[in-house]
Design a protein around this nucleic acid. Structure first.
Length: 662
RNA sequence: GCCUCCCUAGCUCAGUGGUAGAGCGACGCACUUGUAAUGCGUAGGUCGUCAGUUCAAUCCUGACGGGGGGCUCCA
């Protein structure tokens, strides 16, 4: 028997030539796949002399991907066993799980998912081995003649980067056979691999939902049925993941919006159009007031513009050419008709504004501008209307009418780097004030095929953005070619309390609009120059930011944002008058208070206040009254008794002023 | 826009081809209580809208409106 000299996890070993990684790592159940000479391979791969083998744990990022990809295969096998005549699409791993696209006779329903899941459990229990087999394009086409989508993929073998590469992206065209107990293939799928050694290595999985999805991601293609699933190295990790989802559902802003009486979407108004109730109104106003104050401090000037405009403005800006399908259709005014219905006099078209920048440009252009005025920073809480496709609406975070905290900065080329730098610092600090602390930045650069402007302009602006970003000491992710056609941008991504990422602020350089609006300033040498224009929004939309904060805080807003900052709860009715006096003093001190004078027992009042997530419960009974004091109960259940009234007021005021969470 | 599921009281949800029920909430009465639900009672619904099938529709079918989950999109 021949011996091979190989390196395993950095240690030189001699093994006999029959040995494969699965034998070498047999002791360590965590190892489910390996790299051989740097390439990710099955544990069943044949070894050669000199190979460098490294075991990959199921819990590592690569291991998780393989686990999830293999689980997708098991699901596909189960689907075809339960629903014969189902054609296969693709089935890659994704964050936290996997999906597989199918073309079934009938779309799946929730009962089907249960059937599929139990078929999967059977396959997992059988411990089918995943066996790699190299094939040729010709043979594969014959073998997969019943799988039209797979055949389409074979032709795309060289395709890189898209999800289909999981199937056919490797150097060789390969098929994975699942071997039954007798060692014979029970199911096969065109796939690049690698896979777990066997289906028995899938510790914990669950099917989540089915959904429609366009074949290969294009709406021009037929729609397939996608099933999403999740898979984890242990049942505990699966449970933790499911708990996270349950937690996310509990803090869903749409649910909290109803529970806390913040806002609603009356059907009568229309899809994607919200009304804010008094309590939501308080939160929103607190958000706006603080933002306004900070912008004032930062040298912004406040402007206002109308909600509708004649078409010409959006012709100048170009929006009617590019985005008219995203705009509400025009109102036609003053049109006159002949008796036969033909047009006697053409009307004027007015549009709802989908953005504010053209208006701000008109303000800039309303008179001659001097270099001494720059940078000119125009700010507006501008309400815009966009005809979003019905399927994309999502509560208050993706609506058809919303208000941007929109500003446009006009500056000289020389001022741009400094302006971007201070702007980014301002943005991040403001977001921190609202309680978001975990950020990364994304720099979107030019797509040469779809962009306007000079190379030198792009380079200059992109470098200025990059420099500003680098200074923040935050992770910077490059979004190559992801810029809008008119200029590069930085976006701030923020992580919320349960680790979800939200795209927040954007800072965008625009080479297009100053030109289209012929914006100019008079430079110190009397020449006319074109200013640089920077678009920026911190919240993006106030409504969306409201929704994000609601989910981030799970409705338990910090005192400065809370609709009711303190609620008075008498131990019994006889203390209501005393507490009313305390509440009046608090109100006079600028605190938003409520007094619970209902018939409920004190315990019930505490419960209600707790469910309303009110930061301070101010409780008073005999002991407090005789001491001229109150007792606090906080949202976390802690309490503090016998606080003199003045101290109680000071404590609340301090929390509000310092915008701390309690 | 596309696929799919859903719409019953203010909220959360049961239920049936013969015009409906619970819990919470609201309102009333009694009770007067020190940190997450006191008891009793009352009111509240043309079962999203409009058509169709049927002797009969909240239930079946269709269209429309609104919503959920995805896909595509997101200036």
């Amino acid at each position: 028997m021949a011996l091979l000299s190989i390196t395993v996890d950095g240690v030189a070993l001699s093994v006999d030539s029959e040995q494969r990684p699965t034998h070498i790592f047999a002791e360590n159940k965590e190892i489910v796949v390996c790299t051989i000479n740097g390439e990710l391979k099955d544990l069943w791969t044949d070894l050669k002399d000199g190979d460098v083998v490294t075991g990959i744990s199921i819990s590592s990022p690569q291991g998780l991907s393989v686990l999830r990809h293999s689980t997708a295969h098991v699901m596909a096998q189960a689907v075809q066993s339960v629903f014969a005549d189902t054609k296969l699409g693709i089935g890659p791993p994704i964050t936290d799980g996997f999906y597989y696209d199918f073309d079934p006779q009938k779309p799946f329903n929730p009962d089907d998912l249960e059937k599929i899941e139990s078929a999967m459990r059977k396959i997992v229990k059988e411990g089918q081995r995943f066996k790699r087999r190299v094939t040729t394009e010709k043979d594969a086409r014959i073998e997969l003649s019943a799988e039209p989508y797979k055949c389409e993929l074979i032709g795309l073998k060289s395709g890189e980067g898209d999800e289909a590469s999981v199937e056919v992206g490797g150097a060789e065209l390969t098929i994975y056979d699942n071997l039954g107990r007798d060692g014979k293939p029970v199911w096969s799928d065109l796939c690049r691999g690698p896979h777990l050694p066997s289906t028995k290595h899938i510790p914990a999985f669950k099917l989540m939902r089915s959904a429609g999805a366009y074949w290969r991601g294009s709406e021009k293609n037929p729609m397939l049925q996608r099933i999403y699933g999740t898979a984890w190295p242990s049942q505990d990790e699966l449970n933790a993941y499911l708990e996270l989802l349950a937690e996310a559902e509990k803090r869903d802003h749409r649910r909290l919006g109803t529970e806390l009486d913040l806002f609603s979407f009356p059907e009568e108004i229309g899809s994607g159009l919200a009304v804010f109730h008094p309590k939501g109104g308080i939160v929103r106003r607190a958000m706006e007031d603080y933002s306004r104050k900070r912008h004032e401090d930062e040298g912004y000037e406040f402007v206002y513009s109308p909600h509708i405009t004649k078409a010409a403005l959006f012709e100048t800006s170009g929006h009617l050419d590019w985005y008219s399908e995203g705009m509400y259709p025009p109102m036609i005014l003053d049109e006159e008709h002949h008796a036969d219905g033909t047009i006697k006099r053409a009307g004027q078209q007015y549009y709802m504004k989908p953005m504010n920048c053209p208006f701000h440009n008109l303000i800039y252009r309303s008179r001659q501008r001097s270099y001494r005025e720059l940078p000119l920073r125009l700010f507006e809480f501008g309400t815009v209307y966009r005809y979003e496709k019905s399927g994309v609406l999502h509560g208050i975070t993706r609506a058809r009418g919303f208000t941007q905290d929109d500003a446009h900065i006009y500056c000289t080329k020389e001022q741009m780097p400094g302006e971007l730098d201070s702007l980014l610092t301002f943005v991040l600090n403001l977001l921190r004030d609202y309680g978001l602390n975990d950020f990364y930045l994304e720099l979107s650069t030019r797509n040469p095929e779809k962009s306007v402007g000079e190379d030198s302009e792009w380079v200059e602006a992109t470098e200025a953005l990059r420099l500003a970003a680098t200074k923040q000491n935050l992770e910077l992710v490059l979004d190559e070619g992801g810029a809008a056609f008119y200029g590069p941008k930085i976006s701030v991504q923020a992580k919320d309390a349960i680790g979800r990422t939200w795209q927040m602020s954007t800072i965008q350089v625009d080479f297009q609009l100053p030109q289209r609006f012929e914006l100019e300033y008079v430079a110190n040498d009397s020449t006319r120059q074109r200013p640089v224009m920077i678009h920026r929004a911190l919240f993006g939309s106030i409504e969306r930011f409201f929704g994000v904060l609601t989910e981030h805080y799970s409705g338990a807003f910090p005192p400065w944002l809370a609709p009711v900052q303190a609620i008075g709860i008498p131990v019994a009715d006889s203390f209501t008058d005393y507490l009313d006096g305390v509440m009046k003093a608090m109100r006079a001190a600028g605190i938003r208070v409520d007094l619970d004078t209902s018939d409920d027992r004190m315990q019930k009042k505490v419960r209600n206040a707790q469910l309303q997530k009110i930061p301070f419960m101010v409780i008073a009974g005999e002991e407090d009254q005789s001491a001229g004091a109150v007792s606090f109960r906080y949202r976390n259940g802690e309490q503090k008794n016998g606080i003199p009234i003045a101290e109680a007021i000071a404590e609340i005021q301090k929390a509000v002023q310092e915008r701390i969470q309690v």
